[in-house]
Design a protein around this nucleic acid. Structure first.
Length: 892
RNA sequence: GGGCCAUUAGCUCAGCUGGCUAGAGCGCUACGUUGACAUCGUAGAGGUCAGUGGUUCGAGUCCACUAUGGCCCACCA
């Protein structure tokens, strides 16, 4: 196969993915390999309505890197994909479409027909996001794709519901809930966002009963809710109102008599110190009302208009009522004043409309008992959350957990599996119940099923095991549960992560305690921000579409860039051009591979032929061994960035910059042992590098691996995706080789520095460069000088015997070697002098620091002996260089 | 009102449990290559590591406070 000079991702990605699919490369073998531990990830199911955003792209990359890594390491690897039915979001999308296209509301269509429409929509559009995950290269087992509303999931959801019901952990209650007046459903605490809004603070006067002219002023932001007031509260220690507690007020408009009560929760310093109590429409008031036995009055309809309880204001919208209430009070002389006021208003995440706290009948799950094991999970280490600081967030929520309102007044979702008899006595059932059949307890006929559906999270909290077939004890459940890794966004630590842990402990009671936690590591990935550090959002229009990036740079470059840019626990600011890093690197790999393969023409069948004895061969193999260990350790510890960085440095700075250059002249030697070894080493290093790269750049590494095997004549169609992770006897760290090559690099560097100094002085090239090596370094030079010649800058180098000291204008030192430079004519001595002086100053500072350190007893006695020795060596070196530079300076 | 996170080169960021003369990529400058690489290589300029105090033989790294920016939680009507 001919490789183009520039890597073109689009020429390969589609084909490669297709080959993986045809080979079933992502589906675990029927039987788990002997002795292989599972490595399982459940994808956080994206909404079916969703399109891939940068957060998905990052998260998908991280999960894929790990799954591919562990698959290659021989673990029984599985990554289960799927989507979430996302009750409110999906229903809203379809409702909107229905109205736009047919001018119909869901009510006009009817429940059954509407749900049918949603399914139609799902079949048509619901796979989009999973397709996009494929573009990214995700190696999910697509044969196991799940959907949170499919029939098997319904069984799981019912099993969970009924189990909790039987344990008395589910109850129906009138509670104040967050009501979304647009979507006309209850939403959970976690779906509410507090948004700062400018508004007014109204001071209302309520007359005291039987006390002509006496009034109490309350401050409120919601004057229209005064119609639902059933009391006024003051702080018991507030002297202003002491005498009034126990007296009665008369509510304007309605003439309702309401008591003044004393309650600690009232802040005497806010407003007037007196607060109206509206238990039906304010969570805090609900609590206060309950403490004082005040009645709960609901003055709102489900759409947010006022109901008949509101007397003259019935039927008005909230906004209209507010206006009219104020006007009315004004007329009555009961509006004291209105102030500007900024406060936080609860807004529904889903409809973006203001939440109305409303008392209504809902289903709740008692959370406290479920929370205990989830708290224990992190305390015992069964669950590790990374970065660690999120543990506290997780625990804080669990330790103060509120009961979970699980009913939603929607149609798209799992219907609450509760049926009622004619007296309204409920019971929960795993099976559908026929209308008319007898209630198992009361014996009376069943008349209806509960109309509500369950919160979406009431299915997704079962995800880690419902995807494996639970409640049946399937082979998959046995083999793949619990999972090892969950990677998700911080926003859903409460909504999802904590609840999955609870569900695992509560519902998988056939398993021993230590196997119930659904995942052992929960990784909270970075948030992807825009270039200015703002959150990407549709409404702000600052989002970057990952598919555009893939289109432009290729999936591998995007994956690599994301991993290189993201360090654990730190958000990442992203601009499209940051993908350049990945693009350049993938192009570099491509060309290095091309070069290697061009030199492997012919009959070679064995990778890594010959025993390397030459320094550079030993060196690169040692570096390869070290890099292999680094990448392996990094990925085992979920340090993605470290792994990618180690590879980047190895491939680019060691392999391409040095090894390929050093080996070029040998490659022309035909059949010499030296040439053979070079070719073998090249092939081995390339092949191993491709394996290490595969988790990060799966497409490109697969293409190059195929090409390499073909070139070696060793191809039998095997794919890199299933290759074994590098390990073994050929890869050992050779410290001597690394140290020796460091000397060479340093030497070359020193020559370049001296040369650069003169070039700074004037662009004149050097008249001559002479090196007088010590006996020790001479050995190393002899070994590699010929190869080093291949480097352009070394072609000017002449090696002299020690002791032959040529006249020099500048002298440098490197690894015990003196480097003499004689300057050509026309050098700007002033500039050279300046440069040298700066260098001297820097060195003086350095030596002073080192001397101080070594003069310090504490350091010498307590520090690691190696560190002290290194410090001495460093000082000596600096002193030597300093001395030479001073000599240079005085000679100028 | 609590809590968390950041602040290191012009830009984006690395610097793990305190210990080489504080690094990388991009950008900039110079030179060299253009027979693996519509490039690549080498070198250079550029930093009082936000500020103040403390612990220590030694602090970018640990502690306290301050400043700036960002995020999360919370029933102040």
């Amino acid at each position: 196969m001919e490789l183009e000079t520039r890597y073109d991702p689009h020429a390969h990605e589609g084909d490669v993915y297709e080959r993986w699919m045809q080979a079933g490369a992502f589906t675990p073998a029927k039987e788990a390999p002997e002795g292989a531990d599972p490595f399982v990830i459940m994808i956080p199911p994206p909404n079916v309505t969703g399109v891939l955003h940068m957060g998905h792209a990052l998260n998908g990359t991280l999960q894929d890197v790990l799954v591919r890594f562990h698959r290659m390491r021989g673990r029984d690897a599985l990554w289960v994909p799927g989507t979430d039915h996302a009750g409110i979001a999906t229903q809203a999308v379809v409702e909107k479409k229905l109205f736009a296209e047919e001018r119909k509301t869901r009510q006009e269509l009817g429940r059954e027909a509407f749900v049918e429409r949603v399914w139609d929509w799902k079949e048509e559009h619901g796979n989009k996001i999973l397709e996009q995950f494929r573009r990214l290269g995700s190696s999910c087992d697509w044969t196991r794709t799940r959907f949170t509303l499919e029939p098997d999931m319904s069984r799981a959801v019912r099993e969970a519901f009924v189990t909790l019901w039987e344990r008395d952990l589910i109850y129906r209650g009138a509670r104040i809930v967050h009501w979304d007046c647009v979507l006309q459903t209850a939403v959970s605490d976690d779906e509410v966002e507090m948004v700062e809004r400018k508004s007014k603070l109204y001071y209302l006067k309520y007359p005291v009963k039987d006390a002509a002219g006496e009034q109490v002023t309350v401050a409120t932001t919601r004057p229209e809710t005064m119609l639902g007031d059933t009391g006024v509260a003051v702080n018991p220690s507030d002297e202003r109102y002491g005498a009034l507690v126990g007296k009665t007020l008369v509510l304007p408009f309605l003439d309702r008599e309401i008591p003044i009560v004393a309650d600690d929760s009232v802040d005497a310093s806010f407003g007037t110190g007196a607060v109206k109590v509206t238990p039906g429409h304010d969570p805090a008031d609900y609590e206060r009302g309950a403490r004082h036995g005040l009645p709960v009055l609901n003055v709102l309809n489900r759409d947010g208009t006022l109901n008949e309880e509101a007397g003259p204001f019935a039927g008005k919208s909230r906004e209209q009522a507010r206006k009219e209430v104020c006007e009315g009070l004004e007329e009555l002389g009961l509006l004291e004043k209105v102030e500007d006021y900024v406060h936080n208003v609860p807004i529904s995440d889903r409809s973006k409309s203001p939440i109305e706290p409303l008392v209504s009948e809902q289903w709740f799950v008692k959370m406290e008992p479920l929370a205990q094991p989830a708290i224990q999970a992190v305390k015992t280490g069964a669950l590790t959350i990374r970065p660690e600081r999120w543990t506290k967030v997780y625990l804080d929520w669990l330790e103060n957990v509120q009961d979970w309102c699980i009913s939603r007044q929607l149609w798209w979702g799992h219907r609450v599996p509760v049926w009622y008899d004619e007296d309204g006595v409920p019971f929960a059932s795993r099976e559908d119940v026929e209308i008319g059949s007898p209630h198992p307890k009361t014996g009376k006929p069943i008349v209806r099923q509960d109309e509500d559906v369950l919160d979406t999270w009431a299915s997704s909290w079962l995800w880690p095991f419902a995807t494996l077939g639970w409640p049946d004890k399937t082979p998959d459940l046995e083999r793949f549960y619990p999972t090892q890794f969950l990677s998700t966004a911080r926003e859903i630590i409460y909504l999802w992560v904590a609840r999955m842990v609870m569900a695992g402990y509560a519902l998988l009671d056939h398993l021993p305690e230590e196997k119930r936690c659904p995942f052992s590591t929960c990784y909270i990935h970075a948030t992807v921000l825009d270039a200015k550090g703002k959150r990407m959002s549709k409404s702000a229009g600052n989002g970057i579409d990952p598919l555009d990036l893939i289109e432009q740079y290729g999936a591998d470059a995007v994956r690599l860039s994301l991993v290189l840019l993201t360090r654990e626990g730190q958000d990442v600011k992203l601009a499209p051009d940051r993908m350049e890093m990945g693009r350049r690197f993938t192009n570099k790999i491509w060309n290095a591979a091309r070069f290697v393969m061009q030199n492997l023409e012919g009959e070679r069948t064995e990778v890594g032929a010959g025993t390397p004895t030459l320094l550079e061969d030993r060196w690169i193999l040692s570096r390869l061994a070290r890099t292999t260990a680094e990448v392996t350790e990094a990925l085992e510890g979920f340090r993605f960035n470290d792994g990618a960085t180690a590879l980047y440095k190895f491939v680019w700075n060691d392999f391409c910059d040095w090894y390929l250059e050093l080996v070029k002249s040998r490659l022309g030697e035909g059949d010499s042992d030296s040439a053979k070894t070079a070719r073998g080493t090249l092939a081995l290093v390339l092949e191993t590098s491709l394996k290490l790269l595969h988790p990060f750049t799966p497409f490109q590494s697969e293409v190059l691996y195929g090409a390499l095997r073909e070139r070696l004549g060793a191809s039998n169609g095997e794919m890199l995706v299933r290759a074994a992770w590098p390990a073994g006897e050929r890869l050992a760290v050779d410290e001597a080789a690394e140290a020796d090559l460091d000397v060479v690099r340093e030497l070359v560097g020193a020559v370049r520095s001296i040369r650069a100094l003169t070039m700074v002085a004037d662009r004149m090239p050097l008249a001559a460069l002479v090196i007088a090596p010590s006996a020790e370094t001479r050995r190393v030079l002899d070994e590699c000088h010929e190869r080093a010649r291949a480097l352009a800058f070394l072609s000017q180098l002449e090696v002299a015997e020690a002791g032959e000291r040529p006249p020099a204008s500048a002298v440098g030192v490197a690894s015990g070697m003196e480097v003499f430079v004689s300057l050509g004519d026309g050098v700007d001595l002033e500039k050279l002098k300046e440069t040298l002086e700066r260098r001297v100053a820097k060195l003086e500072k350095g030596t002073a620091g080192a001397e101080g350190k070594l003069a310090n007893k504490g350091f010498v006695e307590r520090a690691d002996p190696d560190v002290v020795q290194a410090e001495r060596d460093r000082l000596e070196e600096m002193q030597g260089e300093l001395e030479l530079l001073r000599r240079n300076l005085s000679g100028l």
